[in-house]
């Protein structure tokens, strides 16, 4: 597993534990007490490291290559997940995965940005940066969900919509804009979880929702801290400053009224325990699905979503 710089001391302890276990396995020395002692030390260290993270460190965790991806989470929280493909106009965009399944007794449509865990997979998934056809696939399936009265669950995890030639030619701006407008009018409830990186318009393109949740170590931002630093300071390396000033961590996003709540992650982050992370997400989403099941008036659902975003913004008058 890839180790983040601030996790190195912890990783060293884990390696030591592994060595000792190997030793006691090979020889007949009993090292169990030593192992236990170091394991306890590792736990304390993990707690210390993870209770005092800087925003820049949280950004790193949000992008950790071993963080659970949308597709894996769908398979962990749903029964009978069936993936659906394509925008019916140009191609299937592997940067967005979507499909239908049962979450307990609820029929749901799920849609999420899809990153990879290694270089090969990341190239195939375009590092989770969708083209316009990704947003159009998402919209096609949201409209389908509306047709069959299925709540929609979306997972946000993208550095942003892809900035490239083909994306511009095929109307990246139009595709995102249309999603924002159409999502606002959906007659079914939409629940969004930012599971990793919430990168700008590319994230919002599937995020105009009734409920928005932040995973504990997820971030949500108008621009990447690096992008912001390179514009304002002409130096992308100043991203430790901008990651603070942009207010992008889960508690910030809740405080600014953009997200409803934070979903706790397993100690050390979701990448240490995918099942536990999935279980926490499932619990929160299920609670909402049960609540929305009781709302039969679709106007209420539209109104709730409209007012949620209508309120956003701070100005003097």
């Amino acid at each position: 597993m890839k180790t983040l710089a601030f996790e190195t001391p912890l990783q060293e302890l884990y390696e030591k534990i592994a060595q000792l276990k190997q030793l006691s396995h090979e020889g007949d020395v009993d090292l169990s007490r030593e192992i236990e002692r170091i394991e306890a030390r590792a736990d304390t260290l993990k707690k210390t490291i993870y209770t005092d993270l800087t925003p820049a460190q949280i950004v790193q965790i949000s992008r950790h290559p071993n963080r659970p991806d949308s597709s894996s989470l769908f398979r962990l929280i749903l029964e009978n997940f069936i993936e659906l493909h394509g925008d019916r106009a140009f191609r299937d965009d592997p940067s967005i995965v979507a499909g239908v399944g049962f979450l307990k007794k609820h029929r749901v449509m799920v849609i999420g940005h899809q990153k990879g865990h290694d270089t090969k997979e990341n190239i195939y998934r375009n590092f989770g940066m969708p083209h316009p056809e990704g947003y159009r696939k998402a919209l096609r399936l949201m409209k389908m969900a509306e047709k069959f009265s299925m709540p929609i669950v979306t997972f946000i995890d993208t550095p942003g919509a892809f900035p490239g030639l083909g994306a511009e030619e095929r109307g990246q701006a139009e595709a995102i804009a249309r999603n924002l407008r159409e999502m606002a009018g959906l007659t079914v409830p939409v629940i969004t979880v930012v599971i990793g990186e919430g990168g700008s318009g590319g994230a919002l393109g599937i995020g105009v929702s009734n409920k928005v949740y932040m995973m504990e170590y997820a971030v949500y931002s108008v621009i990447s801290p690096e992008g912001c630093a390179s514009i304002l300071f002409h130096d992308a390396a100043k991203s430790d400053i901008t990651s603070k000033s942009l207010k992008i961590t889960a508690p910030d996003i809740v405080a600014l009224g953009v997200a409803d709540d934070v979903i706790k992650e397993p100690m050390g982050g979701a990448h240490y325990d995918w099942e536990a992370a999935a279980a926490s997400i499932k619990k929160v989403v299920l609670k909402d699905l049960n609540a929305y099941k009781k709302i039969t008036n679709v106007k209420k659902i539209q109104e709730e979503r409209y007012l949620k975003f209508r309120k956003m913004g701070q100005f003097s008058e």
């Binding site: 606002a184 700008s200 318009g201 105009v208 108008v222 942009l246 209508r310 956003m312």
Partner: peptide, 26 residues
């Protein structure tokens, strides 16, 4: 584009304005 100095709330203006256009279309 969005005004970085207002962080995430500037991003959300995209959703707010587009949602209003949905009502206009209705």
């Amino acid at each position: 584009g969005a005004r970085m100095q207002e962080g995430i709330l500037s991003l959300m203006q995209m959703a707010k304005t587009s949602a209003a256009l949905n009502r206009l279309a209705e």
